[in-house]
Design a protein around this nucleic acid. Structure first.
Lengths: 225, 225, 225, 225
DNA sequence: AATGAATGAGGTTTCATTCAT
DNA sequence: AATGAATGAAACCTCATTCAT
């Protein structure tokens, strides 16, 4: 399964019916929101950056909040797209003998996606706590859709004894924390540090693997815990 | 080493010289900032919530930003306090035979601290990306002080073969991601979900352990990876 | 003289050359202006209500003010139409022996007209004070044309001793106040009160009669109300 | 009963606790609202006219609408004050043998009041149709309080046979229409015409008298008007 | 130390009007 | 004739900050 099956990398793919000015507005808004935060960004600033009149923003987006939502909703949809493939188990059996291969493919793919949409990703994680609508959207999309699919997948490998017996929620939380933690450290908190990207990615994935792998897969009856 | 050695639970401990009004202002600001974000909170709102006049805030804190920093700086200090004990290795040897015991104590303790200061913790992680001074402070405190100490500790156990050979930076990043990920999921994103706190804490710690433990501690030469 | 001779009930009678869209615009504008006032109504709102594009309004009416005038001017013309009949005295002698009959016919007829055009009537009385052009129009039409004619009529009956000797201006003012006062109370201020329309109309007319009739016309037993 | 008993002529009498700036704001707002209408007056215009910063307006009045209400509510209170005297019948018997004397005193007094507060009076009659709160206030004050009192008074004279047997509501409506009609003609529509104020006032009052007086009270030679 | 009125810059949003299609 | 995207001035309102009391 190539990464290309999963990905949807640029924001305006599949976004039809946007005028040129609308695109410029969205781009400018993404840039500003991600740099200064939603509340600290003024619409006049966005207008200037987009090269349009301030009124133009409000012709397309009734309110500033509307503008925010108009970029987050499609992004969420694209993020979960790969999880919504039907008959995921067939894909799994067919393509990935060991869960590690699958997990690696999945993680690399979604990391790739987020890297390509970093500013938007940053906006989402920054603003979710302050906007109940966003939170609701997030819960519905990630919390439900993705949860269902990923549970299914994990169950597939748990049945094979390749993944430890944890509640899906916990597994997802732990894996997601590690992944998001990597992205946030790498691109948001310490972007200008000296990173060996390939190695860090590998370490991150390894860490998840180890954490999720049953100890006694390796040696029956070994550890104490 | 009891948890009590580490902790500093309420905000005003060790904060001398604060008038009653100042405390009310800080408390009100913490509440508002954490609920709505720094930029979206007005000083007049804080004044009203604190029961003081608008001018009073500016008598004590020259600007709104000052007010923000005045709560974050001490919080950071308190967070890192347990890491700044001298001769940490002595403590380690003396008290914790296995790294797991140490890690568990450390994690539980810091989680306890953050839980007791959740709103402030939330403010810090929300605002760091938007305030260079904060970022600088964070890097200096966490990034340096804590890093040094924790590196030292990890090296201690790496030398014993109890922890895998990863760069300290990576280890800290992975452990921190998992811990913060737990707290953020638990208290910020899904606070009203149905959590089995004790079990989740245990899973979180286990996850870190597994992820950091050398595989061949369990069985030499076993897996392929 | 039947009421039908006087009346011009619907707005678009005699309005040739208006496209379908223009009519919709006018109708929408009348509704909005009368509900919210001219200044508080936006052209975009009118466009939406009329089901046309915003630009279409300005194709037909150069400015918003133009749109206002385009509805008020014809309305004024229609209101005064019955007063502009030539040789009114002939009509009077021919048809109305007693002034009361004439006055009643006149009042009933004009009330009927205004009732049929209430929203527009409301707009006119609301906006006149704020638009000099309107005020000028009003003065010229009502203040001059109507004044002349009505003066003539009143003089006709004053000569017969049926109406007290007051300046025409005062008579008109008093009669008009009473009539407009009725309409405004009935339809604008207390439209949802419980009105006995026929009785109130009768009382209104009686009030004008009494107020304008010389006292000593009423010798005992002449009539009882 | 001298007119002075009734009157409350300037707006700020009895208005305590207003800062100098607040008074200037109110005065400027009254002037502008009455000249251009509420909706067509901008707050910046009021601020400039009042010589204060625009923000100052909003420190004292949360919204523009608030500012409007803050001037209308006291005005209504003052207008109805004379009607709320207890035991009005005692006053009537004691002081006014004939209803004409009473009516004249009352009318002259209230006209005097309105003349002294013309701009505010104009604002009220202009804005009532567009603001439900105002309408409600108006109904409660004028429609109830005044109505009750005036009904009582009229009944007093109706019992003596001096006023015709009409429902109080109708009487008040007719009298009010005539009075307001005079004021509106005189001061709002044709303020610059050539008025003989004393004569017109007299005619207005006479008109009400005649309209309300039973016809058969007037036997020949009874009085000459 | 504390107040809260006052400020004016700037925030979001609305609006009448224009113009290319 | 009709559209509706685009404009930019101006509307209402908020805000951090100052200062006389």
């Amino acid at each position: 399964m190539s990464n290309q099956d999963f990905m949807m990398d640029t924001f305006f793919e599949d976004e039809e019916g946007l005028t040129e000015k609308q695109k410029k507005i969205i781009l400018a808004a993404i840039e500003s929101f991600s740099e200064k935060g939603y509340a600290a960004t003024s619409t006049s600033e966005i207008a200037k950056k987009a090269g349009v009149a301030e009124g133009t923003i409000f012709r397309h987006y009734k309110t500033k909040k509307d503008l925010l939502l108009s970029m987050i909703t499609p992004m969420m949809g694209k993020f979960i797209a790969p999880f919504v493939i039907k008959d995921i188990n067939k894909v799994l059996d067919h393509r990935f003998e060991h869960y590690e291969d699958f997990l690696r493919a999945m993680i690399e793919n979604r990391i790739e996606f987020l890297k390509k949409n970093l500013p938007l990703f940053k906006i989402i994680i920054q603003e979710i706590p302050f906007h109940p609508e966003l939170k609701a959207q997030f819960k519905e999309h990630i919390g439900n859709k993705v949860f269902e699919r990923v549970s299914e997948m994990f169950k597939h490998y748990q049945d094979k004894g390749q993944i430890i017996e944890l509640p899906s929620k916990s597994i997802i939380r732990l894996a997601a924390s590690t992944i998001f933690g990597f992205l946030i450290s790498r691109y948001i908190i310490f972007p200008e540090a000296d990173w060996d990207d390939e190695a860090e990615m590998e370490r991150t994935i390894q860490f998840i693997m180890h954490g999720l792998t049953p100890k006694d897969e390796f040696i029956p009856g070994s550890e104490t815990e």
